[in-house]
Design a protein around this nucleic acid. Structure first.
Length: 748
RNA sequence: GCGCGAUUAGCUCAGUUGGUAGAGCAACUCUUUUACACAGAGAAGGUCGCAGGUUCGAAUCCUGCAUCGCGCACCA
């Protein structure tokens, strides 16, 4: 027996060595798998690319653990497995991180450096961040194919992004339009609807009228925008106001000259406030809709820096907050303010910068989700090639046809609900880091293509694309699209997309949209959603609470196996998980338990001889299936008890295999833990001691054979969960020179 | 406002199609020339959020309510 078994299991001394062994074996790469796998059915997962904004957190660790379990399981079953890694440039997130550092360390802003120099800084930061992340992924034991690694902003992905943009532009699905967008004054960029976080705040609702002669009171929480009003809308059936509809008033409001028309519109709720709405088309989406229905003009009164524009009377040039106070004061002084009420309202803030989102009319690029187009080629169930569809319909069909299955199922509803409310997706961003929009302008001409057009005087669009545009292509851009590569043929659609439920809309839905549109296919067959990893008290891990648990820390203290198991057990799909150091520690003890089981069995088996050979030499290593138990003929007869144990182990194997197929990893982990510790070790092993020490040679040999068999089976079943300690033990419990456990048969 | 989830032992969670409540951790008692004290043995611990209903039988199905959490929409 190897001397290392005499000491407690030491993850740090083991893990890096084992990982190297796996990498050198080539088994992470589907092209260099054993013959059995090469001939097997393909099974692929693309890694949700972590943002290159720093380091990995526990959520990433959970994601890696779950995906590695899926891949290792399928690899042992003989599938041709590919797990493809990569990182995401994460446009706004990364840029704002670098901007913050620049400001802090050098007191400079990005414009002080200029576009080119600033982008160099971001690249340097992204590179460092990338290296850290890759190291962390290895530490977790991820059996990932590094030879295919991708980055959302590398050359090949740039070709994919530009091809996608051009294709969708030619289909009429990408258009440029002047519309109300979500403007983040802090980040100085537009953001999509999904990048908004609503925060509940107390606000005041002011009820007032524009002037003494104006007949209707209106209510607002934003008096400063009222200098941009062009109308007052009332419900067309509202008897209080019916007589005014159609009238027009010219008036002076806090020094601003307004022309207010009274219009009837069904969007107005007669029961809210005074039942009359001041219409500000330039600074409210719903108001803009009302304005367009009545042919009203739009007057912008707030600029990109959240300051009042000129021509706004007494508030011109003021910041929005100051302007609000000024208007209220003016209303009071002129006895126009009827009442002030306290209300709570949801205020829109930008997810990344926390800035208060200002709706502004701007010229931006959009993806039309409701526009019918001809989908040339389709294998999506329910959509025929050449059929007219909208992107929304594609997204819906992909899931409600059953082609894509979401786990847990209840997220179907959330997904459909989101689609129903979906509006055109604003994809242009006024930041520098990211894919620059592949559009060039020259006077009135516009050119959309993969490269700049020939000839003088063309200027490329200044904006970049929403980061989710490139991530939306991830399942196929990583496999070589738009080239028709072999990888694309073999591994797409991918089998499973495993990611957090928090990016179901951001990412999962966008991938379905992009893949449907560009390939006429689905990007994956199953979506497995995991929850958030919270601290032991159920709080979100955050810097301000200082309750972050660092995965590397846990790995260092307790080993990657223990860290992985602690993230799996007690965690169902779609549910948030609580994690404490004690939990990880518990599974460290389990690693050691298995280690000692192996030690006991090895030393016992080596001591027991049959026909001049030790039992470890007799029992072949690959005999994992009970049906295949094929030991030395002399020992074919199991004792009655051992036959019973064999049966029980076989039943467990069948049960656990079924649950693996149902993605119930938390159950499998727990069951194996329980079997190994409290059945195999506590009952069977304890009971074995007198049998082995006894005089009945036959019974003793039968039992030792069983112990070896059960150890091998347990270690194999546990391998996807705890790859390191199981591989290490595997190296000692069978014939030398055979393959690693990573490609051993899954027990049956 | 619409929708989703949770509520089971001190804590974290299981509980498949309804058949007398389970696991881990913690706590308690005992055990140390024992494969492992990163351990073993043992005992203890729950009117399954509340109220109704269906049923021979409900943690499980139905209705209503409560508390907590989440998503979407509205947000004049």
């Amino acid at each position: 027996m190897n001397q290392k078994f005499l000491k407690p299991y030491d993850p740090t001394a083991t893990e890096d060595r084992i990982y190297k062994l796996w990498e050198e074996s080539g088994f992470f790469n589907p092209d260099t798998l054993p013959e059995r796998n090469k001939k097997g059915e393909p099974y692929s997962i693309v890694l949700p690319p972590p943002n290159v904004t720093g380091t990995l957190h526990m959520g990433h660790a959970a994601m890696l653990a779950i995906e590695d379990i899926m891949i290792r399981y399928k690899r042992m079953q003989g599938f041709r497995t590919l797990w493809l890694p990569g990182t995401d440039h994460a446009a706004i997130a990364t840029q704002s991180k670098v901007e913050k550092e620049l400001e802090k360390k050098e007191g400079k802003r990005r414009h002080d450096l200029g576009r080119e120099e600033f982008l160099k800084r971001v690249d340097t930061f992204a590179k460092e961040s990338h290296d850290t992340i890759v190291n962390q992924v290895r530490k977790m034991g991820a059996s990932i194919d590094w030879s295919r690694e991708a980055f959302t902003l590398d050359e090949r992905r740039t070709v994919a992004v530009r091809t996608a943009f051009k294709t969708m532009y030619d289909l009429g699905l990408i258009y440029r339009g002047h519309r109300i967008v979500n403007w983040d004054p802090k980040g100085q960029t537009t953001i999509s609807d999904d990048e908004i976080v609503y925060e509940e705040r107390k606000a005041k609702l002011y009820t007032f009228k524009y002037s003494k002669d104006f007949p209707i009171y209106i209510a607002t929480t934003r008096p400063e925008t009222k200098v941009g009003d062009v109308a007052v809308a009332v419900h067309p059936d509202d008897v209080r106001y019916k007589k005014y509809v159609g009238q027009e008033f010219k008036l002076d409001f806090a020094g601003a000259k307004l022309t207010i028309k009274i219009v009837g519109d069904v969007a107005v709720d007669p029961a809210f406030g005074t039942g009359a709405v001041g219409v500000t088309p330039a600074h409210s989406g719903t108001d803009a809709d009302i304005a367009s229905r009545h042919g009203l003009p739009s007057v912008q009164v707030i600029d990109e820096f959240a300051k009042m524009t000129s021509g706004t009377g007494i508030v011109a040039g003021m910041k929005v907050a100051a302007a609000r106070e000024a208007i209220v004061k003016w209303l009071e002084e002129n006895s126009l303010l009827e009442k002030t009420e306290d209300v709570t309202q949801n205020i829109a803030t930008a997810e990344r910068t926390g800035g208060i989102v200002e709706p502004l009319p701007k010229l931006q690029w959009f993806i039309a989700v409701n526009k019918p187009f001809k989908l040339a080629h389709s294998v999506i169930p329910g959509i025929k090639s050449g059929q007219e569809v909208t992107l929304k319909e594609i997204m819906k069909k992909a899931v409600d046809s059953g082609a894509i299955k979401i786990i847990p199922e209840r997220f179907d509803k959330t997904y459909f609900h989101w689609i129903d409310n979906l509006r055109d997706w604003c994809i242009s961003r006024q930041i520098w880091y990211g894919h620059r929009i592949p559009v060039w302008y020259k006077e009135q001409e516009i050119f959309v293509g993969l490269e700049a057009p020939k000839g003088e005087g063309w200027k490329q669009d200044e904006d970049t694309l929403d980061t989710w545009f490139s991530s939306g292509l991830w399942t196929f851009s990583t496999l070589g699209w738009p080239e028709q590569t072999n990888d694309l043929k073999v591994f797409h659609p991918t089998n499973v997309l495993e990611t957090g439920y928090d990016i179901l809309f951001f990412w999962v839905a966008r991938m379905i949209l992009m893949t449907g549109c560009l390939l006429g296919d689905i990007p994956f067959k199953t979506v497995y959603l995991h929850g958030l990893v919270r601290d032991g008290k159920g709080r979100k891990m955050s810097k301000s609470l200082d309750n972050n648990i660092d995965p590397l820390d846990m790995i260092k203290k307790f080993g990657a196996d223990a860290t992985r198991l602690s993230l799996i057990i007690g965690t169902g799909p779609g549910n948030d998980a609580k994690l404490s150091e004690d939990k990880v520690k518990g599974y460290k003890n389990f690693s050691n338990k298995i280690w000692n089981i192996a030690r006991f069995i090895l030393s016992t088996a080596e001591g027991e001889r049959h026909q001049g050979r030790t039992l470890t030499q007799i029992a072949p290593r690959s005999d994992l299936g009970v049906a295949k138990v094929n030991y030395d003929p002399a020992f074919k007869e199991w004792s009655e008890t051992d036959a019973g144990y064999l049966k029980r182990l076989h039943e467990l194997t069948v049960e656990v295999t079924m649950e693996m197929d149902e993605y119930k990893f938390y159950l499998v982990g727990e069951k194996l833990y329980h079997y190994v510790w409290h059945e195999f070790a506590d009952l069977i092993l304890e009971e074995s001691k007198p049998i082995i020490a006894g005089t009945d040679h036959k019974a003793s040999v039968s039992r030792i054979q069983f112990l070896l068999h059960a150890l091998r089976t347990s270690v194999a079943l546990l391998h996807p969960f705890m790859p390191f300690v199981t591989e290490e033990i595997w190296g000692e419990i069978g014939k030398k020179g055979r393959d690693l456990l990573i490609v051993e048969n899954w027990p049956s």
